[in-house]
């Protein structure tokens, strides 16, 4: 059998196995485990969207939480029923045009992405004229502006009170297909001429310009698409937690996603997926560190936030010993196994 054909069959088999695993998980996992699993999928979407900008286009952006907030609020306001809105907006009533608007989840999810993309475009068009750390500071600033605006538009977003009682739409069969779609999109994109242009801009902007790449356009498109994915991720997160408020979308959230991208490997889809799942699970497993710790001889009091120290140490270790993260910028492929000697070589030799 030709390797290409065999790899296609292997991919189809892996896809089928994935669906079966999802179905089994959905049946047999308890609600907490299911929630962690959904969180993993959402982090896959978010990590890929940040990796698109930071890893594949080489733009150091720190504004992700802002675009997630836009997506989360858009989706929440579109899906909540008029009664829920009335209950939430008790300080000041919601603006009239939103009061009776309520649409199904999937179109609202797309709308969340589109609104986030629009904001991303409006932020990106001026900010992407900057480079490196200046761009990072500018995007960080924009994300904070978005958060402050959300806090202060009482009749639109319910201000600091946030929105409560969102319908729990982010089920296994919603979030994992979103994650799979994001992976498929990224694989398709990186293999297209547009993806190649992004990587060329990352490697050498001047040479890319000299090759006839419209450098600025590539940057803006990458940033806008990434904002779309961040918006969708934010919307999914909101409908998983069923509560959103502006304090959720601080720089810490961006940092968590950045952590996943750096640990997985800047510019690697595979790395982002593995790290997103690994970090999310680890965040829950290590939750005991935040409580009182019993060392047998003595017991410490609860110190909330201690588990984040583990991630800081992990990040330091990566920066010191494995700068390029888990995968560098390599990707998973079926021929990896044969190269590693775990399967028969494709050319027929042992």
């Amino acid at each position: 059998m030709r390797p290409g054909r065999r790899h296609l069959l292997l991919s189809l088999a892996a896809g089928a196995l994935f669906v079966v695993a999802l179905a089994l998980g959905d049946q047999f996992l308890d609600s907490f485990q299911l929630r962690v699993s959904s969180l993993c999928a959402i982090y896959v979407v978010l990590a890929l969207s940040l990796n698109l900008v930071n890893g594949f286009t080489g733009l150091f952006s720190l504004g992700h939480a802002g675009f997630m907030a836009v997506g989360a609020y858009t989706c929440a306001l579109l899906t909540m029923t008029p009664e829920q809105k009335e209950m939430n907006f008790f300080l000041a009533p919601v603006v009239p045009w939103l009061a009776h608007l309520s649409i199904p989840f999937l179109p609202a999810l797309v709308a969340a992405g589109l609104v986030a993309a629009l904001i991303g475009f409006l932020v990106g068009a001026p900010a992407l004229r900057l480079k490196d750390d200046y761009l990072a500071i500018a995007t960080l600033g924009f994300a904070e502006i978005i958060r402050v605006v959300l806090t202060n538009t009482q009749t639109l977003t319910n201000g600091a009170l946030g929105l409560k009682g969102l319908p729990m739409y982010a089920t296994t069969w919603v979030v994992w297909p979103c994650a799979a779609l994001s992976v498929a999109f990224m694989v398709f994109l990186t293999r297209s001429s547009y993806g190649r242009a992004m990587k060329a801009v990352r490697d050498d902007e001047i040479a890319a310009g000299a090759m006839g790449v419209d450098v600025f356009r590539v940057k803006v498109v990458s940033f806008t698409v990434s904002s779309f994915m961040a918006g969708v991720g934010g919307a999914l997160l909101g409908h998983l937690l069923t509560t959103i408020d502006p304090k959720m979308f601080t720089f810490m959230l961006t940092f968590n996603i950045l952590l996943v991208v750096v640990l997985g490997g800047i510019g690697s889809i595979t790395g982002s997926v593995i790290a997103a799942i690994g970090v999310t699970i680890l965040m829950e497993v290590l939750r005991f560190l935040d409580g009182p710790l019993n060392f047998g001889l003595f017991e410490t009091e609860a110190r909330p936030g201690l588990r984040m120290v583990v991630f800081s140490l992990l990040l330091m270790a990566v920066v010191l010993f494995r700068q390029r993260g888990l995968m560098g910028n390599r990707e998973f492929s079926w021929s990896m196994f044969s190269r590693a000697g775990l399967a028969r070589r494709e050319d027929g030799r042992a």
């Binding site: 001429s193 190649r196 242009a197 990587k199 060329a200 990352r202 490697d203 050498d204 001047i206 040479a207 890319a208 000299a210 090759m211 006839g212 790449v213 510019g267 910028n329």
Partner: peptide, 25 residues
């Protein structure tokens, strides 16, 4: 067509991808 000073090729792209970048226009 422009060949910049200091041969600014794309270091993380393969030779084939570098050549195909020449087709970007």
């Amino acid at each position: 067509g422009y060949v910049p000073q200091g041969r600014e090729i794309f270091p993380r792209l393969t030779v084939e991808e570098n050549l195909r970048m020449g087709l970007a226009s």
